[in-house]
Design a protein around this nucleic acid. Sequence first.
DNA 1: CTTCCTGCAAAAGTTTTGCATTAAC
DNA 2: GTTAATGCAAAACTTTTGCAGGAAG
Lengths: 146, 146
Amino acid sequence: MVPRTAELHELVDRRLRAVGQRYTQQRRTLVEALHRDGKPSSITDLLAHVQLPQSSIYRNLTVLEQAGAVRRVVTEEDFARYELAEDLTEHHHHLICSSCGRVEDVTIPASLEADVDRTLEGVARRTGFASISHRLDVIGTCSDCA
Amino acid sequence: MVPRTAELHELVDRRLRAVGQRYTQQRRTLVEALHRDGKPSSITDLLAHVQLPQSSIYRNLTVLEQAGAVRRVVTEEDFARYELAEDLTEHHHHLICSSCGRVEDVTIPASLEADVDRTLEGVARRTGFASISHRLDVIGTCSDCA
DNA sequence: CTTCCTGCAAAAGTTTTGCATTAAC
DNA sequence: GTTAATGCAAAACTTTTGCAGGAAG
């Protein structure tokens, strides 16, 4: 389910082209950084890990998001985080520490996923919402902050 | 399960006192505005609905949050929203429109709630997290934006 | 009267934008 | 060569803070 690094770039490239965008060196660098991190990164994180101007990071993440290669993640913090799109990694959820802001990836049993999907689909339909996705996170205190 | 307005103030008052804070007129005004709105309000919303300085709104919401009377809600937008604490209303989830930012409250069947709770409790324990709460939202497109 | 809350204005932090230059195709 | 991406600096927007004055207990 998780693509090898080689075909990861292939996939991102295709999605960018599909929306009339180029897969430039900077964008490649960002995708690799997000892939290495394996959990949602803040702009500050990225600034420290890659050598790129801040405005380029913002602009390229926005482009990558519109191409469906990257997802913007909201946490309890007052800045955004970014991660590779779920279908370039695998469907997962987040453990968010409300004390230090740390974010970890977790998966839950497929049976529960299916229940959640089915229920929310119904909820959305009844309220005139077109459901695109759900967000199921655990907010708590991580072992370091306990 | 939903307290009448009279005892709502009673409850908020008690929680504020418990953390050494006063239930001032401004805070009462904010609680009433949030209660009227019935869904998460942004600071801009509150500025329009109540006649209070911006800094007082921020400061009082922070106090009310620390007292456990109000909850800070993060959406896909790049500003926060606030709502009354869940045990002053009732446990619910959000339909978030990724196009216009609109947020609606919804409830899901108690049986699914219980499944989710049980599963996340286990997930949290295995990863050293102390689970305080979960967040289950539907991200989609509302009927106006469809 | 003493402590905490309020209001204004300024500061801090995150994200966006204008425009000249450079890289991609 | 033409079009789109980049880099820098400035602007926009959300949120926080310092401090003098006012309300609450």
